[in-house]
Design a protein around this nucleic acid. Structure first.
Length: 230
DNA sequence: CTCCCGATAT
DNA sequence: ATATCAGGAG
């Protein structure tokens, strides 16, 4: 066998070992997050429609504030028809504290109008249908699928998951879709939904954006960034 | 890539 | 002062 071919084979072997080590480390991270955080959504909701609306409202806003707004909102708007027929001027004021209120009003009214027109007022339980709806991107679709329907079509990749995945070295990608693909390869499908929820908990309370609390972090030993961060 | 919104933590 | 907060559309 030629030296060149031999070197190539050795390189492949090393590559396999490396990816196996990466997979093992990922599973260890999954396990530790499982012990450290509840797989819990902090947005309040009682059905898929409420979760979809709450998730749209949650963009660039704390869930605490979203919950304050939806506590009142969900009593008035109980069906997709209720939202679809709402006066935009009035609705805008009702959700104003969540910020981006003009865009969110447009999104929610267009979303619910599309629900009435295309889906008999019901939130669809398939990714393909959800992302066709105005105001619903893949992130919101994954939230609704995973936590309202118990589906396992993907992993929620929001601002927290992007940051934590990068810091933990679980993905070197910058686009959310590609990060999601990397995570789906590393995490068992049964864990997809809960893993996303725990990554968000971790990002909110420990691996925070500004000043991460590496002391007491459940995955500190497994984190390549632990030293360079606070 | 920018824009949308304003409160809050650092 | 300014980066950030469960994003999506143009």
């Amino acid at each position: 066998m030629s030296p060149a071919k031999k070197a190539k084979r050795e390189q492949r072997r090393a590559g396999k070992a490396e990816s196996a080590a990466r997979a093992k480390r990922a599973l260890e991270i999954v396990e530790r997050l499982d012990d450290a955080y509840p797989a819990r959504i902090e947005l309040n909701f009682r059905n898929p429609l409420e979760l979809a609306v709450a998730t749209i409202l949650s963009a660039q806003c704390t869930d605490k504030r979203v919950n304050e707004v939806t506590a009142i909102l969900f009593e008035k708007y109980r069906t997709a028809e209720n939202y679809a027929n709402a006066d935009p001027e009035v609705f805008q004021e009702e959700i104003r504290p969540t910020g981006f209120f003009r865009n969110k009003t447009r999104s929610i009214l267009a979303f619910t109008q599309a629900l009435v027109e295309r889906h008999d007022g019901l939130v669809p339980d398939r990714m393909e249908a959800l992302v066709q709806l105005p105001g619903i991107g893949r992130k919101t679709a994954n939230v609704v699928l995973g936590s309202a329907f118990g589906e396992r079509e993907g992993i929620v990749v929001d601002t927290h998951v992007i940051r934590v995945s990068e810091r933990l070295g679980l993905s070197k990608e910058s686009e959310p879709e590609k990060i999601e693909q990397d995570l789906m390869k590393l995490v068992p499908r049964d864990e997809w939904t809960d893993f996303g929820l725990r990554m968000i908990q971790h990002g909110r309370y420990t691996c925070t954006a500004r000043k991460p609390r590496c002391d007491g972090c459940p995955v500190e030993e497994l984190c390549p960034s632990a030293h360079s961060l606070g």
